[in-house]
């Protein structure tokens, strides 16, 4: 495991240097990415200017939800976002070259063309999160749950990225279904679940447990009652959801690699 991390960092640092070869482009991309993700929050702010609250939640509380899910997807995207390009690597035969190298395949795929501009998203989400956190009434258990929330959220998005990319072992294309779950999952958790019908919330809790990215831990941290009256222990169950996601993703990856046959020459 430690070896894999070292390998990852080595490959990533190569790509950091490479992306600095065009500094003007790098800075434009970093600023662009910062602004682009920031606009999501501006949009929420605009919506909230027209109403007092959204689903019973104030702007600062929504900012907390937004920051938490933003950090989750930002960390996952930073580390493994490149796995989206798996299909392209299969088509061009890059994956075959990677398989011959003595570094875990997933590490190579994810570290390939590591993009430091993705730090911009981490920064943007952190700013909103920290701002929103100043309105929270902090206690020690709440702080611990906050840490657990960000870690679990990152793991859930990490698993979504990797697990859904595995579809490309079969299709060698079509990354957009994955977007519906990764970026769609991010979008849906930017808002309080109370906005959505009960059936959707239950599906996001028990079928595809994306609501654990921020909603349940945030209810605990913000000291709010569950608007749907679901059991309170769910608010501390995010690590369980994250573990399930991770297990499913690991399984998908294994099956995918096993199934993989090169596209040939």
């Amino acid at each position: 495991m430690a070896d894999a991390v070292v390998d990852y960092c080595r490959i990533a640092s190569l790509w950091v240097r490479a992306s600095m070869a065009y500094p003007a482009s790098f800075w434009m991309m970093a600023v662009g990415s910062f602004l682009m993700t920031g606009l999501d929050f501006v949009a929420i702010w605009v919506l909230l200017r027209n109403v007092d609250d959204l689903g019973g939640f104030s702007l600062t509380e929504i900012g907390f939800l937004y920051g938490a899910t933003g950090l989750g997807i930002a960390f996952a995207d930073l580390c493994v976002g490149r796995v989206e390009r798996l299909g392209q690597m299969i088509r061009t035969g890059r994956l075959d070259t990677m398989m011959t190298k003595p570094v875990p395949l997933l590490v190579q795929v994810c570290a390939d063309e590591f993009a430091p501009r993705r730090f911009a998203r981490v920064l943007q989400s952190s700013l909103v999160f920290v701002w929103a956190a100043t309105y929270v009434d902090w206690t020690l258990p709440r702080a611990l749950v906050a840490v657990e929330m960000v870690v679990s959220g990152s793991v859930i998005f990490f698993s979504l990225f990797v697990g859904l990319a595995c579809v490309q072992f079969w299709t060698a294309d079509s990354t957009e279904v994955a977007n519906a779950f990764t970026y769609g999952g991010n979008q849906v958790t930017q808002f309080p679940m109370s906005v959505f019908p009960q059936e959707i919330v239950k599906a996001l809790t028990f079928v595809l447990p994306i609501a654990f990215v921020n909603w349940y831990p945030a209810l605990f941290i913000l000291g709010r009652d569950d608007p749907f009256g679901l059991p309170e222990w769910l608010q501390l169950a995010s690590p369980v959801a994250a573990a399930l996601f991770l297990g499913a993703a690991a399984l998908a990856w294994r099956v995918g690699v096993r199934h993989y046959r090169s596209t040939g020459s």
Partner: peptide, 11 residues
């Protein structure tokens, strides 16, 4: 490399 301008435009 036109990725930067394209991204700003997208934003």
């Amino acid at each position: 490399d036109d990725v930067g301008p394209r991204m700003l435009l997208g934003f």
